[in-house]
């Protein structure tokens, strides 16, 4: 990966990377990717992927409301809040 591509990925992941970090990050990422490419040593054609170690079925829950309002508790951790809302810098109106 080149520096440009690293910047693109950093944007996708919403990570601010300063110029000082950029070179070492590019270097590390490339080393790791080279290492990961070792996977290509084996032919996996036709092998079913395993997404989860326990290949069991999903358990479902009943449609019940048990939660009570805990807004004030949750808002305690909020970096910025007002009138029961979490605040963020103005999101440009879409319409």
């Amino acid at each position: 990966m080149k520096v440009d591509e690293i910047k693109k990925i950093a944007f996708l992941a919403r990570l601010d990377v300063n110029d000082r970090e950029l070179l070492s990050l590019t270097n590390d990422v490339n080393n790791i990717l080279n290492f990961i490419n070792k996977m290509n040593e084996v032919d996996t054609h036709g092998i079913a992927p395993l997404a989860h170690p326990l290949e069991i079925n999903q358990r479902l829950r009943n449609d019940e409301v048990t939660e009570t309002n805990q807004r004030e508790l949750f808002l305690k951790n909020a970096p910025a809040q007002e009138a029961g809302l979490f605040l963020v810098p103005k999101v440009i109106e879409e319409v």
Binding site: A80, E82, G84, L85, F86, L87, V88, P89, K90, V91
Partner: peptide
């Protein structure tokens, strides 16, 4: 939902 009423130039988030 994002609420765009003005909170000192901020947007409010209701989840």
């Amino acid at each position: 939902k994002s609420l765009h009423e003005d909170f000192h130039g901020m947007t409010g988030i209701d989840l």
